[in-house]
Nucleic acid binder design. Sequence first.
DNA 1: GCAAAATGATCTATATATGAATCATTTATC
DNA 2: GATAAATGATTCATATATAGATCATTTTGC
Lengths: 118, 118
Amino acid sequence: MDQKQKIFERTPRARSRYTLEALGLLGRLIRLSRIEKRMTVQGVADRAGISRGLLQRIEKGDPRCEIGATFEAAAIVGVTLFESDINNLAVHSKRANDMLALLPKSVHAGTAVAHDDF
Amino acid sequence: MDQKQKIFERTPRARSRYTLEALGLLGRLIRLSRIEKRMTVQGVADRAGISRGLLQRIEKGDPRCEIGATFEAAAIVGVTLFESDINNLAVHSKRANDMLALLPKSVHAGTAVAHDDF
DNA sequence: GCAAAATGATCTATATATGAATCATTTATC
DNA sequence: GATAAATGATTCATATATAGATCATTTTGC
């Protein structure tokens, strides 16, 4: 006894208006594409390897979903972020990598700028 | 005893190549913007209301993160999906809603089309 | 209208993501 | 080079997201 006590505290998540709007839109786009392609919730969920309930939450824009599950479902119904084809995506990916190689590896405070304008 | 037995089985998540690439790119974009703006990991994490470790996983493209946390971090460093300003986002959001109102409320199998081309 | 199917919603058990702490390493600033 | 700060990586306790089941409701197709 008298073991080192660990405290686990999870601050209630505050989501910006933008985040909630973006997630809501993403969900509706998924739902839109799914219906346009005449796929059922269960069908898409099966293909994505997730449960029906989770897909329903995704389509409602619930912020507490694995991003992997959301992206997978989106891709299955044809909603692709960034660029629509994988080749372009790979190109962008490489460019981002190249840019990163040129930037400083760590950032020291001092000149940190505020950017709450979203 | 002889209570109804509940089985909880979580199938190992299979992610498509596209999903992994997209998440990797998103993470790198966040990291890129963060460094360009000279913000530290801890600083962005604080503003997003998440832990430093979680932001690191986000920047690595880990699919098992809350999508809300990811979008929040992205917005803070200036990476916005869909459209960059909230007004356009709201417009798109409304359009998606309007479209949905015109489509059938439920989809019955039968003419479901396969769309594995991503 | 009728039957079948899809959707919406809720509940429970549990697998797991997360926050916190810690240490080692790398990087920036002087 | 020296120092302090930032980053990377790991471990652990626990809050919580998820799968599955179930029921009610809505919708489609005949």
